[in-house]
Design a protein around this nucleic acid. Structure first.
Lengths: 224, 224
DNA sequence: CTGTTATTCGAACGAACGTTCGACTCAGGA
DNA sequence: TCCTGAGTCGAACGTTCGTTCGAATAACAG
């Protein structure tokens, strides 16, 4: 039990967190491979060798950023989903939670989306495992949607991964000063997805299908 | 006018194309910064210095891959769109053209999607320009959809970029042996998008909206 | 044949890379 | 007071990086 004045583990992790923040920014700007430890040293104000007091390798730096981000997003999602049973509402929560976090932490978002297959060994496995759980949650929600009669018989994998595509691609184009914020954006994307996978009973969807399908012939001719 | 036997520019460009193919694979596997010219030398069978007879820098290698891919996709799209006026059909053609090319050239797809902000100077400008034209085509089609009463008053930028997100994210998950091919995939994504942005006159969409919106309150509470 | 041009490559360049090491400071406990 | 251990850093390690250069070879023209 160290006295209050001691620079205890809280202090240490404070500095580590600071390093992680700067690292995420540098990784986001130059990519993991394109960024050097020297860049991170410069950005964080910690000397080159001083960094290695807090992390044992560059890979661990990336690992810590990714695992922390995924854990936070997943735990907030589970929290927000509690007590909500309507499938469409649950999907909206998922989208909102995802975009809310990503637009608030754009650097981490970029690192998560871009540096997907950089990690190796146990680092890789751990990140893959938590990502799989996150994906699984989305998949369950989609199945609920379908059981509730609010989704067509789509390939669930395709539907869910398309949704993630919409959301994750944001990091390539979103400009905070120009584009809608998390609230509006998650509204639009949730609606797009829910309408997109919805059981189409209306006449419009059938008309649409026929007209659109005729255009495909041209594409098939050229591609064949 | 050189004789037929001369290793003319066609021969040279043949070898350059071979180098570009191998480069795309290496860039896709290890990322642009993570891949070394030596990796490309090994993969293509051309000696390290021999590569520089065909390209003047590593950046130019990436530039050539990106510009060629964009040019091909864009020109095929314009070809396929000719004579088709129905907006929904035109959108289906765009999606099909995009996915067809990407699934046939997965390495180039990955390089295009991931190495978005690596190029500098004129290389960057040229690629950005053709990408802007491609994006513009998609935007026009969406506006046509809206004029035809087949799309809600969505932010067109958001709608179109969401569609590109769906399509481009594929490079992170598509496994040719497991997942649907271009035909089925573009069918699903076109439908999802068209339904997603469609004017919702049916009762279902309104029911959905109300139920889903109620779930958002939870998310707003936590995020606020 | 000789001369010229196109193609290829081994060897090397200087710079930058991730990481290590030993020395230093400084505060707290004995 | 001396000792200990956490924190910090300059300097250097060996390796790899993108690129260059000059020599060698191959292919054709005259």
């Amino acid at each position: 039990m160290p006295p209050a004045v001691t620079p205890d583990s809280r202090m240490v992790s404070r500095k580590l967190e600071m390093i992680l923040r700067h690292s995420a920014r540098v990784f986001a700007e130059k990519g993991y491979e394109g960024a050097s430890i020297r860049d991170i040293s410069r950005a964080s104000g910690v000397s080159l060798s001083g960094l290695y007091y807090y992390i044992e390798s560059k890979q661990k730096l990336l690992y810590l950023i990714q695992i922390h981000t995924f854990r936070t997003i997943l735990s907030r999602l589970q929290q927000d989903l509690q007590g909500v049973s309507d499938p469409a509402a649950r999907l909206r929560i998922l989208v909102h939670n995802h975009l809310e976090y990503f637009l608030r932490h754009p650097m981490e978002m970029k690192v998560l989306a871009r540096e997907d297959d950089v990690l190796q060994g146990d680092y890789r496995k751990e990140v893959a495992e938590i990502k799989r759980r996150y994906y699984g949650t989305a998949l369950e929600i989609f199945e609920e949607l379908r059981r509730a009669g609010q989704a067509r018989r789509l390939n669930p994998r395709i539907a869910v991964l398309s949704l993630f595509g919409m959301m994750n691609w944001i990091h390539t184009w979103h400009r905070p000063q120009v584009d809608p914020q998390a609230e509006a954006l998650s509204d639009v994307m949730s609606q797009m997805f829910l309408h997109g996978v919805m059981n189409g009973h209306g006449l419009e969807s059938q008309k649409l299908s026929r007209a659109a399908r005729s255009g495909l012939k041209v594409a098939a001719r050229v591609a064949g």
